[in-house]
């Protein structure tokens, strides 16, 4: 994939998220919102390798993964608004985005909640004799959860086609990584015999390259691999976070290594015309304006829809309605 295509998706995520922040603060998006701004190069660099038949699991900070894998921004924005044509008909929301057509097995409101599901998706592919890999995204907060350790063990034991992607943005909510973990990540991963690579998560080409290297082993049936992308979230843990756990100076320094500006600079240096980038950016702005307008004009779901979709098969007649 060309850097220009990667840049387009990173730009889409950045500007989608900026709109989400504004709309949330304006009271148009209900719930909690966790923005992906600053981490775009990770989702885009990894998921550029997504092929139909692959799967992914995401996190509470999942908008970037969804957009990078090609979820329709209109249906996604409508979901964030809680509207009827949302990708989950308004039953999921920001932390529970699913898209069966793109193998998206969910953002997840539980830290590390997607890890066992990803391992199982890999197991399912194995049992069914299907090609495909599972991209399993999680943050550094997930390193404290037992399911990460169990999942690494099981995936390694059974050589399952899972790429574990740690987005180390240095904070689990407000707690720094070193304050809450006694181990070094490479030591943990290699203890399970799982190949480990790290990448500068502000450099989309580096993430792309490291992913390619790890994936070639997975697609050949050698079992799981682990990518640690060092990244930083420019915004708070959630919209409204007072951010008392880090200094303004630290954030300013990190922002100087902006993955979007980095990619744009490289494109210009490689001879891509300014005009070409501006045209691309304008197309993305139009797409996103359309997504917001679509969400705003979409109807709320019928309240009775709340009682549907629990089961795939009917559960019989409940004359009084609710179970």
């Amino acid at each position: 994939m060309e850097l220009l295509d990667l840049y387009r998706l990173m730009y889409r995520i950045r500007r989608f998220e900026e709109r989400v922040e504004r709309l949330f603060l304006a009271g148009k998006i209900p719930g909690f919102v966790h923005l992906y701004i600053g981490q775009e190069a990770v989702a885009v660099g990894v998921l550029a390798h997504y092929r139909p038949g692959d799967y992914l699991t995401s996190t509470h900070r999942g908008h970037g993964h969804a957009l990078a894998v090609g979820v329709d921004p209109k249906a996604m924005m409508a979901e964030l608004f809680g509207r009827a044509p949302g990708i989950c008909q308004g039953k999921g929301g920001s932390m529970h985005l699913f898209d069966a057509d793109r193998g998206m097995l969910g953002a997840n409101g539980i830290v590390a909640g997607g890890i066992p599901i990803a391992v199982g998706a890999g197991l399912g592919l194995r049992v069914l004799g299907r090609e495909g890999v599972v991209f399993c995204f999680f943050g550094d907060g997930a390193l404290g959860r037992g399911v990460l350790h169990e999942g690494l063990n099981l995936a390694a034991l059974w050589r399952l086609p899972v790429l574990f992607v740690l987005e180390n943005n240095r904070y689990a909510s407000t707690t720094g990584f070193a304050e809450s973990h006694a181990f070094r990540v490479p030591a943990l991963v290699t203890a399970y015999g799982v190949p480990y690579l790290e990448a500068d998560g502000t450099d989309v080409e580096q993430v792309y390259g490291a992913t390619a290297e790890l994936l070639s082993g997975i697609r050949m049936g050698r079992g799981p691999a682990f990518l640690e992308a060092h990244t930083y979230r420019f915004k708070g843990h959630y919209v409204g976070d007072p951010e008392r756990y880090r200094s303004r100076q630290e954030v300013e320094e990190a922002r100087r290594r902006d993955p979007l500006a980095n990619a744009r600079g490289k494109l210009l240096a490689s001879g891509v015309a300014q005009k070409e980038l501006e045209d691309l950016e304008r197309e993305e702005e139009e797409l996103l304006e359309e997504a917001v307008a679509f969400a705003e004009r979409s109807p709320w779901p019928d309240p009775e829809e709340a009682l549907t979709d629990l089961f795939a098969e009917p559960v019989g007649d409940y004359p009084w309605g609710e179970g």
Binding site: G113, I115, P116, I117, A121, L128, R130, G146, L154
Partner: peptide, 28 residues
């Protein structure tokens, strides 16, 4: 042994993995 699997003692991951396998079309 592909279809009848002994597992480690990892209940959370076993339940989650059974769920993940079901989501991709297997019937665990």
């Amino acid at each position: 042994l592909e279809r009848v699997r002994d597992t480690p003692i990892s209940e959370p991951t076993l339940v989650g993995a059974a769920l993940g396998a079901a989501l991709v079309g297997a019937r665990p």
